[in-house]
Every structure is written in C-alpha cells, then in structure tokens.
C-alpha cells in the first residue's frame, strides 16, 4: 500500500503516539475559534463549560470505554446499562435511601461488566457478541421494570440536579462536571501510575506477549469490563441527575457516541495505544459540534451524525496510516 511516510518523531520531542491527540486538540481549538468568529456570544468560557455540563455522563462512559478499547475490546452494552441505571434508581428511590440506591446501581454495573469480561476471557467469545447480549439484557431489564418514564423526586437527586457551582462571574458548572472530572483524574492516574493501567496497555499491544511476560491477562481483561460497567452505572447516575427521570429509552445509541469519542480522541481500536486526554477532547469535540449546529440554526441536528461519521472516517484512516508506517519500519 502506498502511504505517506509520517515523520518518526514530531518536532519538539513528541512521539508519534501523541499525533492523533494533537490533531483532536487542534480541531477543538479551530472549531471554537471559527465559532467565535462566526457567531456572537460563542467565544465565552461558559460555552465550553456547557459542553462539559451537557456531556458529563458521556464523558464518564467514554472513560470506561477507553479502558476496554485500550485492551483491544469493545463494549456495546454501555448505553443500555446507563438506561438500566436510571430505571433502577428511579423505581427504587421513592422507597429506598438515595445512598443505598447509588451503591446498588454501581454494584449492578460492576457485576454486569465483570460477568461479561469473564465470559469474553474464559470462553474466548468475541467481545462484540458478548456485550451485544449484555446490551439486550440490560435494555430488556429496563422494559421489564417499566415502559414509561419514571420521574425522580428524591431530594438528594433534585438537590444535585439544581446546584450551580459558580467559578467566576458568568461562569458556572454543575456538580456532575466535578464528578466526571474526578473520574477522569482517577482513571488517568490508574492508567499511567499503576500496574493495572500498564497491563491494560500491554494486553492491548500484544495479548500473547503479555501472557508470556507473566502479566495477569485474565484479571486485566475482566477488570476493564468491570471498570466500563462501573463507569456506565456512574454515567447513568449523572444522567438521572441531569434528566431527573428513569426511562428505558434513555441513552439509545450512546455506545456509538462513546466509541466515536474514544476513536476521535486518538485511541487505536485495535488496542494498546491512546490517552484519556484524547477521550476528553473527543467528547468535547462531539459536544462542540452540537453547540455549533445549534448556533447555526439553519443547520439541522442530523448534521451532527454526518460530521461525527466523517470525523470517524478521517481518524480511522489517520490511525491506519500511523499503524502502516509503524509496521513498515519494523520489516
């Protein structure tokens, strides 16, 4: 295949791995600048904060997805687990203390994830199929609980939903953003400063080698799906704060948004390469696209999907280019 040779090292001592993250970052800045020039009232800090506020739950889910994709897997169940969480929370809250509900849904998410991870690893079934079954299961459970939207009136939940944290005059965020950012920080620390994190990269880089190097491959694979399940449940909680309702049709197709955010953030879908910072940028780009389209007014919402699809195409081709040049060097 003919490909352009990428420079082995970018100026400024940045390894090639950072290239996609840089591209995504540049894209975000370019979109923000262009938006600022084109629309009045766009270039404000609150616009960026709003992107965070509106996408806090997606950010958390995408963090979990990043773990899974870094090992070379995929998790299609996240959207359904988000919906299931809102549903369980909404149906239990009237009769159960809120902290118990929160613990319970997190446990359910974690256990579901761990179960899928175990099936994937021990029975050697493709992650795609196992998590597809998980997706059906979680949605099915939602509908068994109820087919209608259930409002949430719990005081703790509504309090969180209505709280505004003022950062500066004219700049505020919601508590959910703080939670999401805390998740990002903890996850970044885990990926870069713990053995679990490095094992995630190793398994994604070459599972067979990881096994031969004595790394706990089984534990790592089960762990990433557990993390993803936990993140989905937490994302579901954030969504309940945001929507104040539980509904079986919440977060339909969210798995695609999460995967898109991770890929646009520069993580290789084949595993082993990528950064959480990229995922954060990916979520921001997705959110900003929606903002731009709402500012544009005449542009309709479906352009979001088309643009996301095109971005996916561009980034997948970019990844392909990086992998190809990387491999050809080794031959």
């Amino acid at each position: 295949m003919k490909t352009l040779a990428l420079p082995r090292q970018l100026p400024g001592r940045l390894p090639r791995n950072y290239l996609p993250v840089l591209v995504t970052g540049a894209l975000f800045i370019a979109m923000f600048t262009a938006g600022g020039i084109r629309y009045e009232g766009f270039a404000t800090g609150q616009i960026i904060l709003n992107v965070f506020i509106d996408n806090a739950f997606l950010l958390v889910v995408a963090v979990g997805m990043t773990f899974v994709i870094l090992t070379g897997g995929i998790d299609l169940s996240v959207g359904s687990v988000v919906a299931l969480t809102t549903m369980i929370a909404a149906s239990l809250l009237p009769s159960t203390p809120s902290f118990l509900v929160i613990l319970l849904v997190l446990a359910i998410g974690g256990v579901l994830g761990a179960a899928m991870g175990a099936i994937i690893h021990y029975f050697e079934i493709q992650p795609f199929i196992v998590t597809l079954a998980g997706m059906f299961l979680a949605r099915g459970l939602c509908y068994t609980i109820g087919t209608d939207s259930i409002p949430i009136t719990d005081p703790t939940f509504t309090a969180i939903a209505q709280t505004r944290i003022d950062l500066a005059p004219e700049l505020w965020i919601s508590p959910t953003v703080l939670i999401a950012l805390a998740v990002v920080l903890v996850a970044t620390y885990t990926l870069h400063y713990t053995r679990l994190g490095r094992n995630v990269y190793a398994v994604g880089g070459n599972e067979q080698s990881a096994l031969l190097m004595g790394l706990p491959v089984a534990r790592t694979k089960i762990a990433v799906y557990t993390v993803s399940g936990l993140c989905s449940a937490l994302g579901g909680l954030l969504l309940s704060f945001y929507m104040l309702s539980g509904y079986g049709l919440h977060a339909v197709g969210m798995e695609l948004d999460a995967i898109a955010a991770v890929v646009i953030g520069g993580t290789l879908l084949t595993g082993g390469s990528g950064y959480l910072l990229g995922t954060v940028l990916g979520v921001l780009v997705l959110g900003l696209i929606q903002t731009v389209i709402s500012f544009e007014g005449t542009l309709s919402s479906w352009w979001t999907k088309i643009v996301i699809g095109l971005l996916l195409l561009v980034f997948i081709l970019l990844q392909r280019l990086i992998v190809t040049t990387g491999v050809s060097r080794e031959r």
Partner: peptide
C-alpha cells in the same frame, strides 16, 4: 483495499448513515 477491520469500517456508515437518512428526509 484500505485494510480496515470490518467492524470498524462499517461502524462509520452506521453512525453517519442515520444522519444521511435524516438529511434526505430533511428530518
């Protein structure tokens, strides 16, 4: 030709295609 894994290659159209369909019907 490009050599992308099928699941990823077709994911692109899965995402963009919905938008394309709405574009055709103008929502």
């Amino acid at each position: 030709i490009v050599g992308i894994q099928p699941i990823i290659a077709t994911l692109i159209l899965m995402v963009a295609g919905r938008g394309l369909a709405q574009l055709i019907t103008d929502g």
